[in-house]
Design a binder for these strands. Structure first.
Length: 893
RNA sequence: GGGCGGGUAGCUCAGGUGGCUAGAGCGACAGCCUUACAAGCUGUAGGUCACAGGUUCAAGUCCUGUCCCGCCUACCA
C-alpha cells in the first residue's frame, strides 16, 4: 500500500493531526453546556522554561484523562497557562545581565521588568509548542498567564480580602533570608543539606567569678550578635551562674546568663550562646527573656556596624575565619571538633540561608489550613495515592505563618500603599485617592508576592474570578488535579487553602500525585543533575506516541518511576506493530472491501475466532476503563499492549490470514472493526497514531485535505463493553495449547520450518475432538506447516514420533527421519519431572483434610480438577518415556 | 529522632480485598527474511518473591521482628 510506509514514521503523522484538531476546535470547552463537566487546570510551567521529562509525564497523564473523558461525552476543560515563576526566572535574567556586563541593580527596577516582559514575549510560545508536540489537548483559547491583567486582579482581590480579614499582616519576625537573592523566603524553600562543618568551643568568662563558661557553636561569627548565654534551669553545673553576666569575647560586651528549658543539658557543653536576631530558636528564647535583638548582617550577607569595627564589611565566610583567628589569638578558643550537620540552603540559588529578623508581610494560613483539613476529612478532596493524605495532614497541622513578600521585582507588587504624610497603611485594588489624614501622596509597597500566592489562586483565577463567570459555575470545583508529590505543600495545599478562602469551596475533588521520573540509578531526573532525558529529542527520535506510551506504562503508584531508554524503545516498537497490523488490514481490505459500514459489521456468532476476539476486546474495554477510572495508567497501557500485540496480532490476525485464504473475509472485517475500537481505546495514550489509523479505517485512507472536515477519534465515543464469552475463550484456550505444543515440539526438536508434519491427536473427550475437528484443520496452517491432521478417540502412537501431553489429550508427530530420540527423551523427561512435582504439590494440598473442609468449594474443586489432569499427564508421560527407553535399548542391541 | 515507600528473573518493573503451574518489557541462548511488521516471528533458559518468626486449610500478598536502599520530616546549638 503506497500511502502506508512499511515502517511507522511519526514525524509525518503527528504535526498534521495536531493542526487538524486545532482547526476543528475539538479541544474547546463550552462555558455553558448540557453535558456533565470535567475539568483539569494545568500545573502552569514557567513561562520562559522548556519542557523537561517531569512535565512530559505530568501532562501526558492529564491528557490521557482529558481525552478519555472527552470521548466519554463530558464537556471537558483542560485549562492551560504559564507561571511567571518569580525568583527562578529573575535569577536566569540576572545571569544574562551579568553576561552583558551589567546587573539588576545597575539597570533598575523599571528597566529590569521591561527586560523580563521582553524575554517573556520571546520565549512564551516555546513551552506551549512543546506541550502541543506531545499532544496536549488543552483549550488553548483560554490560555492564561499569572501576570495577566485578569489574574493580577484576582491576586489583588485575594490580598485585600485576606488583609481585611486580618489574615495578612505586617510584622517584625524571624524569617529565612537569602543573602544571594536578597529576599526573605519561606520554610519550604529552605533545603537542609548535610555538610561537614565544625563545632567551635569558645570560652565566655563569667563576670565577678573565676568560672569560665564554655559554649559550643557551629556558626562562630554569629557571636557578634549574641545577647545572652542560656543554660538549663535544672543544670546543677551552672545553677550558681544564672543571673550573672558573661563577658562576650571580641565584642567587649556583657551579656546575661539566663535559664531556659530549651537548652539540652546533654548536648555540647550544656551552655548555649543566644543570638536572637539570627537563629530561630534563639529568637524564641529572646522573646521569652526580653533579650535585645542584635542584627549583625546586612541584607546581602555582610557584617554591619553593630559588630566591632574590625569585622564590619566582611562577608559571612571571611568573618567566620577572622573571628576564629581572633579567638585563637585571645586564647578564647578551646577546640575545634569536626561536626556533620544540616545547613539550610536556598532551593533556587543554593546559597546558605541566614535566619534574620526583619519587617515582613505574612499570611496567617492556620485558619484556612484547619478548613482544608476539615474539608479533606469530609471527603471533599481525595488524595491518590491515599498515603499522601497523611503527609498533607501532617503539614497542615504544623503549618506556620507564610512570609508572602519577596524583596524582588518580577511578580505581583503587593497592593499596599503607605501615606507619605502619616504612614497609614491602605490595602486597595489601586492607588488610593486620599488618606484619612487628608494627604493624597502615597507610595506603594516595594515588595512583590511569593510566586506561589498567585499560582495558589490558579483554579479560579484562570476562570475569571473575582467576576462571577459561567466558567466558574460550570467547572469549579475542578475534577482532578494532577501533579508530582514534590509540590504538594508548595502548590496543592496552597490552592486548597486559598480556594476555600476565596471561593468557599475546595478547588478540586481529586488530587492525583504521580511519581517523579528517575534515571536507572533511582535518582530523580533533573537538568541540574544532568541525568535528564530531553522530551523533544525523545519525540524526534521515537515519536510522541511512543514516548507517551512509555510514560503511561512507567507510571506505577511508586514515588519514583523508572524510565529507561529501553521503555521508550518498546513504545516505538509497539507503535510500529500497530502500524503494521493496520497495514495488513488495509492491504487486505483493498482486495475484500467491506460491504457495509464499519459500525454495522455483522457479528458472525458461529465463528470461534470472531467470538473469541470480541470477547477479549470486551475484556480489554472493561479493564482499560477501570484502570483509567482508578488512575492506574500503567495497567491501561499494559492491557492494551497485551491485547493488541499478543492476542490481536499474534493470534487473531493469523486466523484472519487463514480465513482470507479460505475466501471468507468476515474475519477480516471484524479485524477492522476490532482495530477501530481499539484505536479509540488507545487514543488517550497514543493520540496521533490512533487518529491516523482511525481516519484511514473510517474514511478509507483519505489522510489529507479531504478528511479535514470530517469526524475525529478525539470526539468519537468511548467503546462500550458488550460482555464476554467464556465458552469461546475456553475453547480457544484449548486450541491455543494444542498449537503451542506443536510449535514447541518443532522448536525443541529442530524440525525445519519447511518440513510438513503429520499430526495425530488422541482425546477421549468427544466434545474436544469435535471442536478440534471443526477448527484445528482450519487454523493450523496459519501457525505451522502440516501435511495432515488425524483426530481420534484411541490412537496408536506412531513409531519414532514426538509427543506432547495436555491433560488427557496427546499429540503425536511422527518424525521418522528427523527425530533425535535422545533429544526427545530429554524433552519428555523434563516434562515428566515437572508433572511429578506438580502432582506432588497438588496431592499434598488435597491430602490435608482441613483444606477440603475449610477452603471454599470453588477452590477445592479447582484443585481436584487440576490434580486429575496432572495425574493423567504424568501417567501418559511415564508410559511414553518407558517405551522410548525400551526402544533405545533395543537399538543398542 | 519520628514517618513513608521499596527489596520479586541479569536489568527496569507488574502482581486492588490471601486461592490456577508468580507475569511483562528489555537482555541472554537456539532457530527462522513464514506474502503486516527483522522496530518482526517461533522456541528455550532464568525466580528458596531480602531474612527470621507468626496467623491461616492456604502467604509474594496479612501480622511482628531484623537487615539493607531511597525519600519526607524534625529546633539538637
Amino acid at each position: 500500500m503506497e500511502n502506508l510506509p512499511k515502517t511507522y514514521t511519526p514525524q509525518e503523522i503527528e504535526g498534521k493531526w495536531y493542526q487538524f484538531w486545532q482547526k476543528n476546535n475539538y479541544f474547546h470547552a463550552e462555558a455553558i453546556s448540557e453535558k456533565p463537566s470535567y475539568a483539569i487546570v494545568i500545573p502552569p510551567p514557567n513561562i520562559t522554561g522548556s519542557l523537561h521529562v517531569g512535565h512530559a509525564l505530568d501532562n501526558t497523564l492529564q491528557d490521557c484523562l482529558i481525552r478519555w473523558r472527552r470521548m466519554q461525552g463530558y464537556n471537558t476543560l483542560w485549562m492551560p497557562g504559564t507561571d511567571h515563576a518569580g525568583i527562578v526566572t529573575e535569577l536566569i535574567m540576572e545571569r544574562k545581565l551579568a553576561e552583558e556586563g551589567t546587573s539588576r541593580t545597575a539597570i533598575g527596577r523599571e528597566k529590569f521588568i521591561e527586560r523580563m516582559w521582553q524575554w517573556k514575549a520571546e520565549s512564551a510560545g516555546y513551552i506551549v509548542s512543546q506541550l502541543q508536540q506531545i499532544g496536549c489537548s488543552c483549550d488553548w483559547e483560554r490560555e492564561r498567564f499569572t501576570l495577566d491583567e485578569g489574574l493580577s486582579e484576582a491576586v489583588r482581590t485575594a490580598f485585600v480580602k485576606f488583609y481585611e480579614q486580618g489574615l495578612i499582616y505586617r510584622d517584625t519576625y524571624m524569617a529565612n533570608w537569602c543573602p544571594e537573592c536578597n529576599t526573605v523566603i519561606s520554610n519550604l524553600e529552605v533545603e537542609p543539606i548535610e555538610i561537614d562543618g565544625n563545632f567551635y568551643h569558645i570560652r565566655y568568662p563569667v563576670k565577678d567569678s573565676e568560672v569560665v563558661l564554655e559554649i559550643a557553636t557551629t556558626r562562630p561569627e554569629t557571636m557578634l550578635g549574641d545577647t545572652a548565654v542560656a543554660v538549663h534551669p535544672d543544670d546543677e553545673r551552672y545553677q550558681h551562674l544564672i543571673g550573672k553576666k558573661a563577658h562576650l569575647p571580641l565584642c567587649d560586651r556583657e551579656i546575661p546568663i539566663i535559664a531556659d528549658a530549651y537548652v539540652d543539658r546533654e548536648f555540647g557543653t550544656g551552655a548555649l550562646k543566644v543570638t536572637p536576631a539570627h537563629d530561630t530558636n534563639d529568637y524564641e528564647i529572646g522573646l521569652r527573656h526580653n533579650l535585645e535583638q542584635c542584627i549583625v548582617f546586612t541584607r546581602d550577607g555582610y557584617i554591619n556596624e553593630n559588630a566591632p569595627e574590625r569585622y564590619v564589611g566582611l562577608p559571612r565566610s571571611g568573618c567566620r575565619q577572622r573571628v576564629v583567628e581572633d579567638l585563637q589569638n585571645t586564647d578564647s578558643l578551646v577546640k575545634i571538633v569536626p561536626h556533620r550537620h544540616a545547613v539550610g540552603h536556598h532551593d533556587r540559588c543554593g546559597a546558605v540561608v541566614e535566619p534574620t529578623i526583619s519587617l515582613q508581610w505574612f499570611m496567617d494560613v492556620r485558619p484556612l489550613a484547619r478548613r482544608a483539613i476539615e474539608a479533606t476529612q469530609k471527603g471533599e478532596v481525595k488524595f491518590i495515592p491515599a498515603r499522601e493524605t497523611a503527609r498533607f495532614y501532617h503539614w497542615m497541622e504544623n503549618i506556620e505563618p507564610w512570609p508572602i513578600a519577596r524583596q524582588r521585582w518580577w511578580g505581583h507588587r503587593i497592593p499596599i500603599w503607605y501615606c507619605n504624610a502619616c504612614d497609614t497603611i491602605t490595602a486597595a485594588m489601586e492607588t488610593p485617592q486620599q488618606c484619612e489624614c487628608g494627604a493624597s501622596d502615597f507610595r506603594q509597597e516595594e515588595d512583590v508576592l511569593d510566586t506561589w500566592f498567585s499560582s495558589g489562586l490558579w483554579p479560579f483565577s484562570t476562570m475569571g474570578w473575582p467576576a462571577e463567570t459561567p466558567e466558574l459555575t460550570t467547572f469549579y470545583p475542578t475534577s482532578v488535579l494532577v501533579s508530582g508529590w514534590d509540590i504538594l505543600f508548595f502548590w496543592v495545599a496552597r490552592m486548597i487553602m486559598l480556594g476555600l478562602g476565596c471561593m468557599d469551596e475546595v478547588p478540586f475533588r481529586t488530587v492525583y500525585l504521580h511519581g517523579l521520573v528517575a534515571d536507572e540509578k533511582g535518582q530523580k531526573m533533573s537538568k541540574s543533575k544532568g541525568n535528564s532525558i530531553d522530551p523533544l529529542e525523545t519525540i524526534a527520535t521515537y515519536g510522541a506516541d511512543a514516548f507517551r506510551f512509555a510514560l503511561a506504562n512507567a507510571s506505577t503508584p511508586l514515588p519514583y518511576v523508572a524510565l529507561p531508554e529501553s521503555q521508550i524503545e518498546a513504545g516505538r516498537r509497539f507503535a510500529n506493530k500497530i502500524w503494521n497490523a493496520a497495514r495488513f488490514i488495509f492491504m487486505n481490505l483493498e482486495k475484500h472491501p467491506m460491504p457495509v459500514e464499519m459500525d454495522t459489521v455483522e457479528i458472525n456468532r458461529g465463528t470461534l475466532e470472531i467470538e473469541w476476539i470480541q470477547s477479549r476486546l470486551n475484556y480489554t474495554i472493561e479493564t482499560t476503563t477501570d484502570a483509567l477510572e482508578n488512575f492506574r495508567f500503567h495497567e491501561a497501557a499494559q492491557t492494551l499492549y497485551a491485547f493488541l500485540w499478543h492476542e490481536f496480532c499474534d493470534w487473531y490476525l493469523e486466523f484472519t490470514k487463514q480465513r482470507i485464504a479460505q475466501e471468507t473475509p468476515e474475519a477480516l472485517w471484524v479485524a477492522a472493526n476490532v482495530l477501530e475500537q481499539t484505536m479509540r481505546l488507545i487514543h488517550p495514550i497514543m493520540p496521533f497514531l490512533s487518529e491516523e489509523i482511525w481516519q484511514q479505517l473510517r474514511y478509507g485512507g483519505s489522510s489529507s485535505e479531504s478528511a479535514l472536515d470530517k469526524n475525529s477519534v478525539t470526539v468519537a465515543p468511548w467503546p462500550e463493553p458488550m460482555g464476554e464469552n467464556p465458552t469461546a475463550e475456553a475453547t480457544m484456550a484449548t486450541l491455543m495449547e494444542v498449537i503451542e505444543s506443536i510449535r514447541s515440539i518443532r522448536g525443541e526438536l529442530n524440525v525445519p520450518l519447511g518440513a510438513s508434519v503429520e499430526i495425530h491427536i488422541q482425546s477421549p473427550d468427544a466434545e474436544i475432538r469435535d471442536r478440534l475437528e471443526t477448527y484445528l484443520a482450519q487454523y493450523l496452517p496459519a501457525f505451522t506447516r502440516v501435511a495432515s491432521v488425524t483426530i481420534a478417540e484411541t490412537l496408536q502412537k506412531p513409531p519414532a514420533s514426538a509427543e506432547s501431553v495436555i491433560g488427557n489429550l496427546a499429540i503425536y508427530i511422527p518424525l521418522a527421519n528427523v527425530i533425535d530420540l535422545d533429544a526427545e527423551r530429554v524433552r519428555l523427561s523434563k516434562r515428566y519431572q515437572q508433572a511429578v512435582k506438580d502432582v506432588t504439590a497438588a496431592q499434598k494440598t488435597l491430602d490435608n483434610p482441613n483444606f477440603v473442609q475449610r477452603a471454599p468449594e470453588r477452590v477445592v474443586s479447582q484443585k481436584r480438577a487440576q490434580l486429575e489432569r496432572l495425574l493423567v499427564e504424568q501417567e501418559k508421560l511415564a508410559r511414553s518415556l518407558e517405551i522410548l527407553t525400551q526402544s533405545a535399548e533395543g537399538n543398542d542391541d
